[in-house]
Amino acid sequence: MERSELVELLSPEGLRLLDGLPEWDSKADIVKTVAALRRQGHPASLVATVLSQAKLRAKASAKFGPFAARMLFTEAGLEQATRLQVAALHAGRFSRAGVQHVADLGCGIGGDALAMAAIDLEVTAAEADEVTAAIAAYNLTPFPHARVLHERAEDVALGGIGGVWLDPARRTTSGGTTTRIADASAYSPSLDFAFGLADRLPVGVKLGPGTDRDVIPAGAEAQWVSVDGDVVELGVWLGALARPGIGRSALVIRGELAHELTAAADSADAHDGPLGDYLYEPDGAVIRARLIGDLARANGAWMLSQGIAYLTADTAFESPFARGFRVIERLPADERGLRQTLHARGVGTLEIKKRGVDVDPAALRTRLKLKGSERATIVLTREQGRHVTLLVERI
Rank of each mutant, 00 (worst) to 15 (best):
I328T: 11
A322Q: 05
A270E: 07
A296I: 04
G284Y: 08
S319L: 05
A265D: 15
E329R: 15
L275R: 03
G284F: 01
E318T: 13
G276E: 10
N299F: 05
S305T: 15
T341S: 14
T312K: 03
G337H: 07
A258P: 10
G245Y: 01
T315S: 11
H271L: 13
P244E: 11
L238Y: 11
L342V: 04
S305Y: 12
R326T: 11
A309P: 14
E233V: 05
A313P: 09
G239R: 10
F317R: 09
R323W: 01
A265H: 13
I292M: 14
P320D: 09
A242H: 10
S305C: 10
D283T: 00
P320Q: 06
D277Q: 11
L304C: 06
E256Q: 14
P320N: 07
I287Y: 04
E260M: 08
R339D: 00
V327W: 10
R248V: 03
D294M: 13
F321R: 03
L275C: 13
L261P: 02
L311Q: 12
I287K: 04
D266S: 05
P244I: 13
R297H: 09
F317K: 07
D334Y: 02
I287Q: 11
W302L: 08
D314I: 01
A270P: 09
G239T: 08
S305G: 01
D266N: 12
H271A: 15
G300R: 02
G247V: 03
F321D: 02
V252R: 09
E233Y: 10
P332Q: 05
A264G: 15
G324V: 04
G324W: 02
L295G: 01
A322V: 05
W237E: 05
G293L: 04
A285C: 07
I246A: 00
G239A: 08
A264W: 00
G276T: 11
R248P: 04
G337K: 01
I246G: 05
T312Y: 03
P244T: 03
P274N: 13
D269I: 01
E318R: 13
D266L: 00
S249H: 06
E281D: 15
G255I: 03
I328G: 03
W237D: 01
T315A: 14
D294W: 00
L311E: 05
R248A: 09
G255L: 03
L257W: 07
A264Q: 12
G255Y: 03
D277K: 13
L338T: 07
E281A: 14
L342G: 01
Y278E: 06
R297V: 10
L261H: 07
G245I: 00
F317P: 04
M303R: 08
R339M: 11
A240E: 14
L304D: 00
G293V: 01
I292P: 00
V236P: 10
P332Y: 09
I292L: 13
I253C: 08
L261N: 08
E281K: 10
R326Y: 02
D266I: 00
L331N: 05
I328M: 14
E256N: 12
T315W: 07
D314G: 15
T341K: 12
D314S: 13
I308R: 06
G273S: 02
A333E: 06
T262R: 12
T315P: 00
R290G: 01
G239W: 06
L338N: 07
A313W: 03
A242D: 06
V252K: 01
T262S: 11
G247L: 01
